[in-house]
Design a protein around this nucleic acid. Structure first.
Length: 199
DNA sequence: ATCAAGATTACCT
DNA sequence: GGTAATCTTGATA
């Protein structure tokens, strides 16, 4: 099967639809001779219109303006003084919605991910499962930072590849992690029994 | 100018 | 189970 880049239309849709369909898709990052890729196994949706936990709930600011742009761009933010988190913007221009990529299953570039995370290229089985099993971890592994905020996912550096949709019975829905507002919205989606889902 | 909070993680008991 | 680490952001003055 040859996978193709997800088209703009994939992203210009309802954030909950995109969030669920992002499960199983492949994120690729190419820089020079290096290539990273991973299969998306856990996501969360954020909708600035009704969701107090979304960065866009307060309206447009310098930090969140990418989220108000058209879908298919990357929104990367810095948090807790230490970590970056990586989001896929969805919907039309003017809509402040995005999907947080919370965990991926490593595919290509595993030794490089290991170096980025642990400063070594051989990892124990336990460390392997810990490479990309969280939003801050996967950004560290892929070396995604503030310079990637606003990256067009239809460009050459970072993009997503299509894959078969995941059957509904393999998707677990739950409440989001690490937030203090709108805590009851069931907008976290992850692959059942996947070992790379965050804890 | 100052401040509190934060879409997290690693390490501790 | 708990919490320290670390710094940007947006709000208030």
């Amino acid at each position: 099967m040859i996978s193709e880049k997800l088209p703009r239309e994939f992203y210009i849709r309802d954030v909950l639809t995109v969030a669920k369909e992002l499960l199983g898709k492949i994120i690729v990052k190419r820089t020079g001779n290096n290539i990273f890729s991973g299969r998306i196994v856990e996501v969360e949706a954020y909708d600035g219109n009704i969701d107090q936990a979304a960065h866009t709930y307060i309206g447009k600011t310098p930090r969140n303006e990418i989220m108000f742009g058209p879908g298919g761009f990357l929104y990367v933010y810095f948090t807790y003084g230490m970590y970056f988190c990586c989001n896929v913007v969805t919907g039309n221009e003017g809509v402040g919605n995005a999907v947080l990529l919370r965990a991926v299953e490593p595919l290509d570039g595993i030794p490089l991910m290991a170096y980025n995370r642990f400063r070594k290229d051989d990892v124990s089985p336990k460390e392997y499962l810990n490479l990309t099993s969280g939003p801050g971890k996967l950004c560290k592994a892929f070396n995604i930072t503030r310079t990637h905020n606003g990256t067009d996912l239809l460009g050459a550096e970072i993009y997503l590849l299509g894959a078969d949709d995941i059957p509904e019975n393999k998707i677990i829905t739950g409440t989001r992690i690490g937030i203090k507002k709108s805590v009851d919205l069931p907008w976290r989606f992850y692959l059942k029994d996947n070992p790379f889902v965050s804890k």
